[in-house]
Amino acid sequence: MTENYGKMGARDLHLFFLIDASDSMKYGGKIETLNNAVREAIPHIRDVARDAEGTIRVHALTFSTGARWLVNNVDIKHFTWENIQPKGVTDMGRSFELLADQLTTEFENIRGYQPVMILLSDGLPTDDYEKGLEKLMATTWGKKAIRIAIAIGQEADMEVLQAFIGDTFRGELKPLQAKNASELKQYIRWASTAVSNASINPVKAAVPMPPTADATVDMDDLDW
């Protein structure tokens, strides 16, 4: 009965992953967990997209020595995840610049929901991250994004991650610290699904709550 005789003007949600692929990610199974966690999140992101009028388009880049695109603008329906192989230093700033370049050149006249950007890192940036972040925040899409940061283990620079988050959710959001594989999976799932949903179906005065880790950490669960 509902043949379409016009368009609804649906928007897409652009979901960006910025992933630390430096040498240190090799240790303690961090990169394996991350690869696995993103893969596990995919069907749940698809579920969010299924209820949306537009779709969710995924972009992912990694940074180590330099930064590079893994996938660009892929509809979540067709999205598959290739394992990341870590190697090199932590040029986080370069990844911000690379993203800023794409947002400047390829996002002109694009309509969307508030984009979601998820930064995952286990260490300290080895380049001038501030310069990169400044460039990213100078773009409309970077500035208006919902920016989430996930620290993998105890070594990540929380101040840098907080700077990336900036005023997201009216400045109420802190970096999430994943202390083990199960937390990392939970956080990646939350950031890619609950936050995406919050962008597509925004509720006034409600910040989606990150999954709360138990207050007392079982030392056996402390992998990183």
Partner: peptide
């Protein structure tokens, strides 16, 4: 609505 590029809280 169509002419707004990104739907953020201010837009809503």
């Amino acid at each position: 609505e169509y002419e707004i590029d990104i739907l953020d809280e201010a837009a809503f």
